[in-house]
Design a protein around this nucleic acid. Structure first.
Lengths: 75, 75
DNA sequence: GCGTAATGTCAAATATATGTTACATCACCT
DNA sequence: AGGTGATGTAACATATATTTGACATTACGC
């Protein structure tokens, strides 16, 4: 995107282990992604596509805005 | 992503014209993207990154879950 | 100690989103 | 009729996300 620095944090790992008993592999399977993708996203190497974000939110039972937090310059 | 069909609809164009007086170019500028990207997203040729989705939500003053609707197979 | 499940790392290939540039149309105004 | 702003389309280049496959580590049960 255009040169605006920003970062999106997420609570996926925390919620996955705290509120579910899902393994990374199981979560990956349920959202239709691979384990590597889950690992990368939990480690915040990059942020998921909007579609994957919706799926994670659904499977983990946590609203989008609570699962993910935008931090950086807005405008 | 893994082979699960889904689509993400959005209310960007509707809200942009109804609730703001922003032109596509102005909206693009404020979210730090290009006009082409806005056009493609409004036409739902593809869905934005999570980061761009957050920015659009912020600039348009509409919560993520109302700006975008997931439709397709969940699991 | 050995096997296994869960987690993590790395590299390369493919898919998708975004940028860049150029051109077309339509409406409005003078 | 000509000019301007807003919108749309298209092709190509770049950046980012996702997959695939191989391998390392840590923890736990047998």
């Amino acid at each position: 995107m255009g040169g605006k620095k920003s970062h999106i944090a997420n609570q996926i790992k925390r919620i996955r282990v705290a509120r579910t008993d899902l393994t990374q592999a199981e979560l990956a399977r349920r959202v239709g992604a691979t384990r590597q993708t889950i690992i990368a996203i939990e480690a915040e190497k990059y942020s998921p596509s909007l579609e994957l974000a919706f799926r994670l939110s659904h499977v983990l039972g946590e609203p989008l805005e609570e699962l993910f937090q935008f931090s950086g310059e807005w405008g």
